[in-house]
Amino acid sequence: MSRAPITKVGSERLRAELERLKSVERPRIIAAVAEARAHGDLKENAEYHAAREQHGFNEGRIAELEAGLSTAEVIDVSRLAAGNRVVFGATVDLEDVDSGESVTYQIVGDLEADIKQRLIAVSSPIARALIGKNNGDDFEFTAPNGVKSYAIVGVRYS
């Protein structure tokens, strides 16, 4: 079985989420299920069904995090000495060649990816196009809305 890479910061964040799901959310949801069950007829009890659904989602996320973290290889990005080369864990500043817009992404493991926080999965098309490039390089990749061209204007490891 191959070990999936994950950043040290991402590992700590996901372990904190796992702990919160187990110690805070699980007891809260169990109490909500018990309270809804006490209201009587379970077939037509919307509160009960909603609480059970929430319980299922919570337990599914717990299982996903436990499985992912158990096979993860934690990489301390601050100790990488890749220089100006883009590798796993790099924070990359990009400029859209066509529009001039700037964007910054960090290349992280699949489990910790979160586009809202600008954390892109190492398996994503843009990360695959970035890996191995150097600061100052231009590159293209196929996005869902067509081919995009970017220039790498900064690479750092922190």
Rank of each mutant, 00 (worst) to 15 (best):
A127L: 07
K133G: 00
A16V: 06
G109Q: 14
V87S: 06
V77H: 02
L14S: 11
V33Q: 10
E95N: 08
S78K: 11
R118P: 01
A81N: 11
S99W: 09
S124I: 15
D110V: 14
E95D: 10
E112F: 05
R52P: 11
V33S: 12
V86W: 02
R118V: 00
S99T: 15
S99I: 09
P144F: 08
I62S: 03
T91L: 07
L21Q: 04
L21S: 05
P125K: 10
D114F: 08
M1T: 08
A143M: 08
A81Q: 07
R85G: 03
A36Q: 02
S102H: 15
V87N: 02
S78L: 03
S2V: 12
G10H: 05
S70Y: 10
T142N: 14
Y150I: 11
L130Q: 00
R15H: 04
A151N: 07
A46K: 00
V92E: 00
F88V: 11
A50D: 03
L42I: 09
A113M: 12
K43G: 01
A38E: 11
R156V: 03
E25G: 00
V147M: 10
E19W: 05
E44T: 08
G100F: 06
V155K: 02
I126E: 00
A81E: 14
L18N: 12
R52Q: 14
I120W: 11
T7P: 04
E66K: 14
A82D: 06
S2R: 15
I62R: 04
V103D: 06
R52S: 09
E44V: 02
I107N: 03
L69W: 07
E73F: 08
S124T: 11
R79C: 00
R37K: 13
K133H: 07
E95W: 07
L18Y: 12
A32S: 15
E17C: 01
I107E: 04
R20N: 05
A46W: 00
N135P: 01
S78N: 05
T71R: 12
V74I: 14
F57E: 15
S99Y: 10
V33Y: 07
V77C: 03
G132N: 12
A50V: 01
G132K: 14
N145L: 13
A129W: 04
